[in-house]
Amino acid sequence: MRKASYSVTRLQNHGYLFILPTLVFFTVFLIYPMISAFRLSLLEWNVLTPAKAIGLKNFLVMSKDPRVVNSILRTLHFSAISVAAINVLAFVFALMFGSRMIRHKNFLQSLVFLPVILSIVAVGVVWEFMYQSTGLIPILVRGIFGASPAWLTTTSAAPYAIIITYVWKSVGYYMVIYIAGLMDVPTSFYEAARMDGAGFWGQLYYITIPNLRNTFALGVISCIIFTFGQFSIQYVITKGGPARSTEILSLLIFREAFELSKFGYSAAISVLFFLMLLVFSIFQLRLFRSGAVGD
């Protein structure tokens, strides 16, 4: 009896070996750097001179640094509009493609999905090209509305040029999530609603939206987290310009550390970035734990 339970324990202990590589790599390359970021944020360090502990001074400086404040506002602006536009459009597209009235769905759907598969840097290159003053977009916009902003050279238009590109690139991804969510709603629900006389809007309001609660939560949360960390499109199209109007936090972190060598200060901005996302990250974690995600 004793021997049996001993060997069962031994058998179960094989599990440690299976999870060992993941534990080691996650600890060294994710958890340790995270702790290290907090420690670094309390230092003044430019690599050349020895690091100096300065307590919370980085955070104090940051709160009065117009460049940081600007980046925070730019990040919030970019994220709020992008996340709203992406999720609303993705949901509407999912409804349209889910409609039984339409044929050739798969082909049309894959057109909307296409930008998701394109290289993000390539997307930046072609949109920057299209936004040029004699490029496609100003000419098209002028043709329709009579006038077009200077998309990449004015501080009022450039953030929207970035948002449009980003939404175009990402919406297909979230559309797939919403389509999958829609397919999970049992058709009997809709049949019952129709029997009760619910029309399109009634079905949408009483059946579709309540049943997609988790899908919405996950779509919006993961979109917020992903959008906050967006870097490539800004880096390729505007490099943060003009006049820092598209210099979002990820770009600022990169520049403070790797162009200005202010490692401690950059780490402090990283910590701020982490804290700004914390509420959403915890929410995402809870979604995963609750079993709302996965098959």
């Binding site: 996650f26 060294v28 390359f29 994710l30 958890i31 340790y32 750097p33 995270m34 290290s36 970021a37 670094l40 987290i225 906050f228 960390g229 870097f231 936090l249 990820s250 972190i253 990169f254 550390a257 790797f258 490692f263 950059s266 780490a267 990283s270 910590v271 970035f273 982490f274 996302l277 914390l278 990250s281 915890i282 995402q284 974690l285 995963f288």
Partner: peptide, 16 residues
């Protein structure tokens, strides 16, 4: 660790 976004650790990661 899904809470750790890459931007948050990029500096210490580079040093490491």
């Amino acid at each position: 660790t899904i809470m750790i976004s890459f931007e948050a650790i990029v500096v210490p990661l580079f040093i490491l």
